[in-house]
């Protein structure tokens, strides 16, 4: 694929809230929901949801990313779950 670090913001933005598999240097593979891609370094922030018990975050450094493959499209529920993890309570948009 085209050099990951050289992609444009709108290309990275498409990955938000998608479940992906990131292949990194040394054949390391990571799977998770994309919360964001740092537009400066190309680093990918992945969230793994293990039900109610635990949630973990893995960041793959942009310079080590070799390939990113979309596994599943996220829905509104995933988007809300991810936002709730990172955004302070006061800045969340409330509905109803």
């Amino acid at each position: 694929m085209q050099d990951w670090c050289k992609k444009r913001p709108h290309e990275w933005h498409k990955y938000i809230n998608q479940e992906v598999r990131v292949t990194a240097h040394d054949k390391n593979e990571y799977q998770g929901w994309v919360f964001t891609v740092d537009p400066v370094s190309g680093s990918v922030v992945l969230v793994t949801l293990h039900g109610q018990q635990s949630t973990s975050v893995r960041v793959v450094m942009g310079h080590a990313v070799r390939d990113v493959e979309v596994l599943k499209e996220g829905d509104e529920e995933i988007a809300q779950q991810l936002n709730a993890l990172f955004m302070p309570a006061g800045s969340q948009v409330l509905t109803n």
Binding site: P9, V37, V59, F86
Partner: peptide
């Protein structure tokens, strides 16, 4: 605008 949104999210992480 997209760049700002991506960056803000990263800084929050």
């Amino acid at each position: 605008r997209l760049r700002t949104e991506l960056r803000e999210r990263f800084l929050r992480s």
